[in-house]
Simulated scan of single mutants.
Amino acid sequence: MSTFVLIPGAGSSAWYWHLVTPLLEAHGHDTVAVELPYGDESADFGDYVKATLDAIGERRDLVVVGHSLGAYTATLVCAELPVDLLVLVAAMVPRPGESAGDWWANTGHSSPEPFDEVEVFLHDVSEELVAEGWDHVGEQAGRPFEDPWPLTEWPDVPTRFLLCRDDRFFTAEFQRRVVRERLRIEPDEMGGGHLPALARPAELADRLLRYVGELDAHRDDWRIAQTLGE
């Protein structure tokens, strides 16, 4: 059985994963939903990684899942521990030396204008969860957008990318291009917007479970893709 390490995106708590964790655990897997110090202006990526490593403890057979900005932390965790699989969900894909702030211009991303948080992020989340969720989000500190991604290359871990076709923040067309350019793989796709763990937890959990089942085959495909891209 695997341990799913679930890392939230910007300004979000471990609560983001609360509908997904019981679905994974029902199949016998362990889960670790990570609480990051996202509101601490002094916290750097080292602090984010430490919070994640502390939450993991002695667990192994790790599947690390990073949502949105959580990809930065997820990839760094892969450089610290043996990880079976890295899964990025509606996520950023960093390059060496690239801060999360630089990522926007470097990828050519532009946010919707005018920017309405509810329309962009919550359009397919139930009213009940939207109301409950305001107690579990906060202002994201700026430091992760300033510090460069410290790795010199992508971690040597098989990687899957899952985009959301109705994402209004990172659109499907944009994500397809970035993933092909930066990871040299084709992203997988599911329906829904930028917050699938809230809007479509069962579908997201099914995808994660399927990825574990396909791990051996994907490991070979990942290595071939990276070799061809060299």
Rank of each mutant, 00 (worst) to 15 (best):
M1Q: 11
S2I: 04
S2H: 05
F4E: 08
I7A: 07
W17I: 00
H18W: 11
L19N: 08
V20Y: 06
H29C: 00
D30C: 08
V32C: 11
D40Y: 13
E41R: 15
A43E: 13
A51L: 12
L62A: 03
H67L: 06
A74R: 01
L76V: 10
C78D: 08
L81E: 02
L81I: 02
L85V: 07
L85Y: 07
A91Y: 05
V93H: 04
G97E: 07
E98T: 12
S99E: 13
G101Q: 12
W103Q: 14
W104Q: 15
G108T: 02
G108S: 12
G108I: 09
S111H: 07
F115N: 06
E119R: 15
H123C: 03
D124Q: 12
E128R: 13
E128F: 06
E132H: 05
D135F: 11
R143Y: 10
F145P: 04
P148E: 04
T152P: 03
R165V: 01
A172K: 03
A172C: 07
A172Y: 04
Q175C: 03
R176Y: 12
E181M: 10
R182Q: 04
L183R: 03
L183G: 01
D188K: 09
H194L: 05
A197S: 14
L198W: 15
E203D: 15
D206M: 05
D206A: 15
D206C: 01
G213Y: 07
G213L: 04
A225C: 05
